[in-house]
Simulated scan of single mutants.
Amino acid sequence: MTTYHDLLSGARVDDEIFTLRPDYRACLLTVSGLTPGESDDASDALLHEAETTARHLLAAAPVEEVPHVAAWRDAYRGFGAKPQRTRNSLEALLRRAGDGLPRVNRLTDLYNAISVLHQVPLGGEDLDRYVGAPRLIRATGDETFDTTAGGADVTEHPDSGEVVWCDDAGVTCRRWNWRQGRRTQLRDSTTRALFILDALAPMTDEQLHTATEDLATHLARLGPDVVVESRILARPTPT
């Protein structure tokens, strides 16, 4: 079983990613001691706040012109993806907010709301289903990705050069922050989780820190024994 200490210390972003986007930063946050639970009044209130924020945001400009959404659309083009067909997770949530964000369980509700409130792509994974530490790489095309198609379980392969998060067992999220795999997805029974916040300019380090702290604060309320740790991955500073 992967411990959150091993996971954070072993996590890495390949140099090819920083060649593609030198401004990229990831904040990895691990949490243990969660008490699983269904959507509740607190998670519903947070989602309502996020929905209101999204409506005000999109009343001022189309979703594709929201600064951090536009940055991610440009990043997708950089590795050959078509952002109008495969939308980053932030854009997908903002587009759904007008009709109401989904209510899944209080853990998923929480991170979806934080994603919208801080306008940052944010993924959540079940740490107990991880094999080794997370890595952000450009795929060879041989890696495996478990998903569903037409209601059936299928195994896909990313495109060569596609940016993917993976562990030792395969791809956990395709196209940087587009679609998460089934193996490590959060479940109603999840008690240990990994969250990844993806940032590009114009999002500042301070804004990324604020989003991470807000997520950590809300996670701490999901059980009396919650422990949260985090690590920032960024391009090494030239010496």
Rank of each mutant, 00 (worst) to 15 (best):
M1L: 11
M1D: 11
T2N: 12
H5T: 13
D6A: 15
L7F: 05
A11T: 05
D15Q: 15
I17D: 04
I17K: 01
F18Q: 03
T19L: 13
T19V: 13
L20Y: 07
L20R: 11
R21P: 02
Y24V: 10
R25D: 09
A26M: 12
T30P: 01
T30E: 05
V31Y: 05
G33V: 01
L34A: 03
G37L: 13
E38N: 12
S39K: 08
S39F: 07
S39E: 05
S43R: 10
S43V: 08
D44Q: 14
D44A: 15
D44V: 13
L46F: 07
L46C: 06
L46S: 08
L47I: 12
E49C: 08
E49I: 02
A50R: 04
E51L: 02
R55G: 01
H56P: 00
L57G: 04
L57V: 04
L57R: 14
L57F: 03
A59F: 03
V63T: 13
E64F: 07
P67S: 05
V69H: 05
V69L: 03
V69A: 02
A75F: 15
A75E: 13
G80D: 04
K82W: 00
P83F: 05
P83A: 03
Q84V: 10
T86A: 08
R87Y: 04
R87G: 00
R87A: 09
N88L: 09
L90K: 04
R96C: 08
R96F: 02
G98V: 03
G98S: 09
L101T: 06
R103H: 13
R103I: 00
V104Q: 05
N105R: 08
R106A: 07
R106F: 06
D109Q: 07
L110P: 03
L110C: 12
V116G: 00
Q119H: 13
P121L: 02
G124S: 01
E125D: 11
D126E: 11
Y130L: 15
G132F: 11
G132C: 08
A133V: 02
R138V: 04
R138M: 11
A139M: 02
D142R: 12
F145K: 05
A149S: 12
V154Q: 04
E156S: 08
E162V: 07
V164H: 00
W165F: 12
D167H: 07
D168G: 03
D168K: 09
T172I: 15
R175S: 14
R175E: 10
W178N: 13
R179F: 08
R182K: 15
R183F: 02
Q185C: 14
L186C: 09
L186Y: 06
D188M: 07
D188F: 09
T190Q: 03
R192T: 14
A199P: 00
A201T: 15
A201R: 14
T204Q: 09
E206N: 07
H209R: 14
E213Y: 00
E213W: 00
L215W: 06
L215C: 03
A216T: 04
T217D: 14
H218F: 03
A220D: 10
L222V: 06
P224Q: 09
V227G: 02
R231W: 00
